[in-house]
Nucleic acid binder design. Structure first.
Lengths: 216, 216
DNA sequence: AATATTTTTTAGATTTGTCTAAATTTAAAA
DNA sequence: TTTTAAATTTAGACAAATCTAAAAAATATT
C-alpha cells in the first residue's frame, strides 16, 4: 500500500511523461511544490519499490506497475469529478481541489460502485477520458474542442449540450455538424478560442468550446 | 487546519467521552492502535492548540472548539455512510472503513451539497443521529430497537422498512405499533435480540431490530 | 499506612517527507 | 575545447508521529 505522498508523485510523473519522457527532477519539484532535493529522495524510494525506473541525472519513467497505479488514481480523480458535477452540481472549475483529495481513497468496491452509479462515464467534465479498472482508455472518436491546441484541425461531430439556446447560438456562428475547423489562437485570459472556419476567423467562449465535440 | 491524525484523535476522544469524562490515556491508546506514550505526546499538542483541556495524569476533555471539530467529522462520517448505503448499495456492515477515510475530506461545499443530495438525512444506516452543520443533533423522538441496551424499555412507534413480508412478520410476532417492549438479552454471536413483550419472551434477528423504531 | 499494581509520563530513538547548503554532473556558450 | 551556467544529487538537519524502556504518579491491596 502506497502513502498519499507516493501516490501523488506517481500521478504527477504520469502526467508529466506525456510531455517529456523521461521526466526531469525539476519538473516534478515544480508540480509537487517541493524542492529538487526532496524529489531525488522520493525517486530513490519509488525506485526501490520498483514503481519507477530511475537513472541518476537522467530522470524517471514509470514501470508497468507504477503506471497502473498512476492510472488508477487518474481514474478515481475523474470519476469523482463526474460525481461532483453531475450529482452535486459543482461547477467544472470547482471540482479539482476536492477531487485531488478524493482520488486517494482506496476502496475497489467504492470505485467500481461509483463508476456504476455514474453509469460508466467515458470522459470527465473537462473532456478528459476515464480509464477502465484495468487501465485501458476507450479510444474516443471525438474530443472536446476545448482540448485542441493552436493549429489543431478537426471536424465538428457532435455537442455535449443540447439546449436550444446553445444550438441556435452554434447555428448562428456557422458551427454545424460536419464543418471543418482549425484553432488559430487560444486566449489565456478567459480561455476563449479563435477558430478558422470557411476561411473566416470567429471567436467562441470557453463555455461554448467545452460543448463542441471534434473528430480529427 | 488539522492533520488527519489530529482529526482522528479528536473524533476518538469525542466518542469516548460519552462513556467516561475526562477520557483516559489508555482508552485512547487502545482505540488509536498506538501506545500510551504516543497518546501523551499528542494530547500535549492538541492542548497547545486549545482543542482539548488536558491535565497530567487526569485525562482530557474536548474544548468547545475541539468538540465542534469532532462533531463535524462525525457528521461527515455519517453522511458518507448514508451515501454508500443509499446510493452505492453498500451493505450496512461494509461502510465503516471507507467512511473512516471519507470523513477526512475537508470541503464545506462538498459536505453541504452531499447533505442536500441525500435529502438531509437525520440518521445514518446504523440509526445514529447526524448533526447539522452547526453541530446540533436533532432530538429524535425515536431510536432503532437495535440501539437499545439490555433492560432498556420503550414503545414501538414506527418502522424503517415498509415491505409487506416484513410487516407481516412483525404482525405475527405481536410487534405492533404502541406495544411496550423491554430488551432482556442481546446475543453477541449474531446480534439478535430477546424481548419481553406481553409478559412473553420472543427473539428477533438483528435485521428485524434494525427496522423497528422505539420511543422511550 | 505501607506496599504493590496499574496508569501515565519522560527520555531518547526511529521513520517519513521535507529542507538548506554544498558538491557533482550534464548541457550550453564562448 | 574550455568555461560558464543549469540541473541534479549528497550530506546533514528538522518536524510529525510513532516507538521502547525507565521513571513518576495515582490507585488498589494487604
Amino acid at each position: 500500500m502506497q502513502s498519499y505522498t507516493e501516490e501523488n508523485y506517481l500521478k504527477i510523473i504520469y502526467h508529466l511523461s506525456v510531455i517529456s519522457n523521461p521526466v526531469q527532477t525539476n519538473a516534478i519539484a515544480e508540480r509537487t511544490q517541493t524542492k529538487a532535493a526532496s524529489v531525488t529522495d522520493m525517486l530513490k524510494k519509488l525506485s526501490d519499490k520498483e514503481l519507477v525506473d530511475y537513472v541518476k541525472y537522467q530522470g524517471v519513467t514509470l514501470t508497468e506497475k507504477g503506471k497502473l497505479m498512476a492510472i488508477n488514481i487518474v481514474r478515481k480523480h475523474r470519476l469523482w469529478e463526474v460525481f461532483l458535477v453531475e450529482k452535486l452540481n459543482f461547477k467544472w472549475d470547482e471540482v479539482h481541489e476536492v477531487a485531488e483529495e478524493l482520488e486517494h481513497i482506496n476502496s475497489t468496491l467504492l470505485t467500481e460502485r461509483l463508476d456504476e452509479f455514474l453509469e460508466f462515464p467515458k470522459v470527465d467534465p473537462h473532456g478528459d477520458p476515464i480509464p477502465d479498472q484495468y487501465g485501458n482508455f476507450a479510444d474516443l472518436s471525438f474530443i472536446k474542442l476545448s482540448k485542441l491546441k493552436v493549429n489543431d484541425k478537426g471536424t465538428i461531430t457532435g455537442v455535449s449540450e443540447h439546449s436550444s439556446p446553445f444550438l441556435k447560438h452554434l447555428e448562428k456562428l456557422g458551427l454545424t455538424l460536419g464543418k471543418k475547423i482549425e484553432v488559430s489562437e487560444i486566449i489565456d485570459f478567459d480561455g476563449s478560442v479563435e477558430l478558422l472556419i470557411d476561411y473566416k476567423k470567429i471567436n467562441i467562449s470557453r463555455e461554448v468550446a467545452l460543448h463542441i465535440l471534434i473528430s480529427k
